[in-house]
Design a protein around this nucleic acid. Structure first.
Lengths: 354, 354
DNA sequence: CTGAAAGCGCTTACAG
DNA sequence: CTGAAAGCGCTTACAG
């Protein structure tokens, strides 16, 4: 466990000053080629690696991006973390990942810890909307998918994406729909819910009203399962014919509940998610969902962080509907309930399912 | 964006020297209470936070643990990361997480990057068995679940756990079994496979031989689905009556394949996994698996890192069988094939399923 | 018990 | 183009 070589060792070995070593390290053009070469040889010979801590102390900058997610066991965020890491790597930056376990206090703690370590920027998928951070932070900070406090956000166009799902279900003839929402203290959950309900109301004016009930949950499997179980315990006539969820995890939980209660999906009940996690196409039946463009989102978040000068504004990328086997035409439709137009769409969609 | 206060600012405000400030910061007992109080007031008034970078440079130590996992999108490792984080937090340490994307080169890169940042210890779930790291690293390093190079490992007793599954399937009367293995360059995959096969051979001597075929895959959904699809395309008489996988992800992929091919699980085919990820009890049917005690493993890994002096040796914790709905008695059993003893066990287990 | 000073390994004006 | 020197914010012998 020998001492690591320092600039000083390299300088001695190369017969130059530490300043010169530092200059070739930073790629400064003004170093005479012969010296540069000697320095590089010394570096190789000694196996020298710059001490990033000393560098950070001197410059107050590192090449690491801090990323905070609400819950790393949520596959959506795991995927997001992987994508951010890839995007960062392309700019030869490292990412430090922390999970806030949905705890705003832990989230705040991690942000401060990142600041303490002089990260060059912070990306946070917020656990809740609020934050009592000062707004004049020393490094750029941007939220991803879920907005933190007053900071800008790169996200899916949650409103557009949620409307897509409303269109889909309404088009299939569903008129009694339950919506499993996400935590009301996250902007994303609220926007998705409101847009879903609003679009359904709009559609209702054209081809007969749809009833929609809202059920507050978290974004996880458990709340999806629990809420669906309650809903599906109602007598068939009062049950929704479709359940839309604010996350795929919730939808997969709902799928589980339907299965336990022996309710056939999609023939007697449609279930749809949001996110398009890897698992969505593995469950039985495959899950209809709205795809969030995670890779793009991650890439944009990283790009924005690097923009000089940093002046992030909100940025949204459209989501897209992915129709699979968990949604189908509504049962017990009275012919008058849907127009020929909608009927046709419903059939098309159903034919298309996975 | 004002300058952060330093020890010097605190010292001035409190009318003491920086040395004294540093001493109260480190909780040194020898500081006179009156001074200590003045320093603490100054700290509070200025909102002072120690600069961890400077501290790290001076002491070559930080309170952060580096954790590297092969793939953060694998739910097992996501859960492991969350558990390590919890265990670290209990000792008020932070964890920096990196994902190697199953690339030994990236893994090596991350280890060196952690070393550069003076982490106080490194935990790595290896992407493959090899490592060309020097063995005299300046900080403790231990592998978790999957061994890295020559380093010690805290893991499930893979051999014991895999044997449990062999017992279970054999006990249910299965005599034609396929095993979907993990990558052969990971020790965990090899140990699980060998133990599974060995136990089956042992059982074969008591109550009739079992045929077992091995199929190499990765640990992910895709390879499970692909391999199962091939296996299940065989004519029924040649098909396995049970498929055991080296991971839950593979098993869930296999479940998907069986479903697509309209093969009833567990009535015509049993499928079993390994890990017991959260999802295992959500899929249809619920997955029989071997539970790895992740929280315990994570906790032990962190504890071992803190042991003074650091002298890690391999440590194993037993896994446990979790019987759910994806396994059942083998079909088309000739009475002679299994003993009454085994028959009874099979029935018991089947009755127990979720 | 406390202060003054050295030093961790870098980078970067400042001279020359 | 390059060297000598200051300084980033701490901690820790060393005196007293």
């Amino acid at each position: 466990m020998r001492r690591m070589p320092t600039v000083k060792d390299v300088a001695e070995q190369a017969g130059v000053s530490v300043g010169t070593v530092s200059r070739v390290l930073s790629g400064e053009a003004s170093v005479k080629p012969s010296l540069r070469e000697r320095v590089n040889e010394a570096i190789a010979a000694l196996g020298y690696r710059p001490n990033v801590t000393a560098r950070a102390l001197r410059t107050s900058k590192t090449e690491v991006i801090g990323l905070i997610v609400p819950d790393i066991t949520n596959p959506f965020f795991a995927q997001m973390a992987a994508s951010v890491e890839t995007a960062a790597m392309e700019r030869s930056h490292t990412v430090m990942l922390a999970s806030s376990h949905n705890d705003p206090e832990a989230e705040r703690h991690h942000i401060l810890a990142f600041l303490d370590r002089s990260v060059c920027g912070i990306i946070v998928a917020a656990s809740s909307g609020s934050s009592d951070l000062p707004s004049d932070l020393p490094v750029p900070i941007i939220s991803l998918d879920r907005r933190l406090g007053e900071f800008s956000v790169v996200s899916t166009n949650h409103a557009q994406a949620a409307a897509l799902m409303a269109d889909h279900l309404y088009g299939l003839g569903h008129r009694r729909i339950s919506y499993i929402a996400g935590p009301p203290d996250t902007e994303a959950a609220c926007v998705r819910r409101e847009a879903f309900v609003k679009r359904l109301a709009e559609l209702g004016e054209t081809a007969g009203p749809a009833e929609v009930t809202i059920h507050q949950g978290k974004f996880d499997y458990d709340s999806g399962e629990r809420i669906a179980r309650e809903l599906l315990s109602l007598p068939p006539a009062e049950r929704p014919t479709a359940i839309a969820a604010a996350s795929d995890q919730q939808a997969i939980g709902a799928l589980r509940a339907a299965r336990d209660l022996k309710i056939d999906v999609p023939r007697r009940l449609s279930i749809a998610g949001f996110d398009d996690i890897a698992l969505a196409k593995l469950v039985v039946p495959r899950l209809t969902t709205v795809r969030q463009p995670v890779e793009k989102l991650a890439m944009r978040a990283v790009e924005v962080l690097f923009d000089q000068p940093f002046a992030a504004s909100d940025e949204m990328i459209d989501g897209s509907l992915v129709v699979r086997g968990s949604t189908g035409p509504a049962i017990a439709m009275k012919p008058g309930d849907i127009t020929g137009q909608h009927r046709k769409r419903a059939d098309d969609l159903a034919a298309n399912k996975g």
